[in-house]
């Protein structure tokens, strides 16, 4: 396992991400990761808010198209996330917080697919009120994404990789 992580960290791509000073290298991948976050969390949270009763005049059926944007965001973040992981594979993989983040995202995505199956596969969704179990799923989705974002952001401050903590707390 360690060999694989080491190989990943020493690959050409990782070295380029670590060492290139170009704004199109690491910073751009990080920006893509933030944009992907906006697409995934933005789309799911808006659907969740609607399911929980916000802006309830919006018909649900057309919102199904929103899921394709969400999957686009997920693809962007899977690719950019693997790149960011590869850059420092051996350190990140030893961070508990990182695996907590991965688990939260896996759970959140599972909840999203459950919501899609329970709500959008039903052709009559707009004719009856949103069932209680779907509302529970929507609430779980919001909480899981908030937790995943928090875990991801805290990676910069807590644990073995803390690029931003070093700047903040080191300089004062």
């Amino acid at each position: 396992m360690m060999d694989l992580l080491l190989w990943l960290e020493e690959s050409g791509l990782s070295t380029w991400l670590r060492e290139s000073q170009s704004i199109m290298a690491f910073p751009f991948v990080l920006a893509l990761h933030t944009l992907g976050l906006g697409l995934v969390v933005g789309c799911t949270v808006v659907v969740d808010v609607r399911l929980l009763g916000g802006a309830s005049r919006i018909p649900l059926k057309p919102l199904e198209k929103y899921f394709s944007i969400m999957w686009l965001g997920f693809a962007v973040n899977a690719v950019s996330g693997v790149m960011l992981f590869a850059k420092e594979a051996t350190t990140v993989s030893s961070s508990v917080l990182f695996w907590v983040k991965m688990a939260l995202i896996a759970l959140a995505m599972w909840v999203v697919t459950r919501i899609r199956a329970q709500v959008f596969d039903d052709p009559l969704i707009d004719t009856h009120p949103v069932p209680g179990r779907v509302r529970a799923l929507a609430l779980a989705s919001i909480l899981l994404w908030a937790a995943a974002i928090t875990a991801g952001r805290l990676l910069a401050y807590i644990g073995p990789t803390q690029p931003e903590a070093a700047i903040i707390f080191g300089s004062q």
């Binding site: 976050l37 933005g42 789309c43 949270v45 059926k61 057309p62 929103y66 952001r153």
Partner: peptide, 28 residues
């Protein structure tokens, strides 16, 4: 962390409205 959660919420609504105007989800 809260700033990024707020980003998700604001960006989601921005996408919803503006993608509709641009032609997605025309049923709404």
């Amino acid at each position: 962390a809260i700033h990024f959660i707020g980003l998700g919420l604001a960006f989601g609504v921005v996408l919803l409205l503006n993608l509709r105007v641009l032609g997605m989800m025309k049923g709404v």
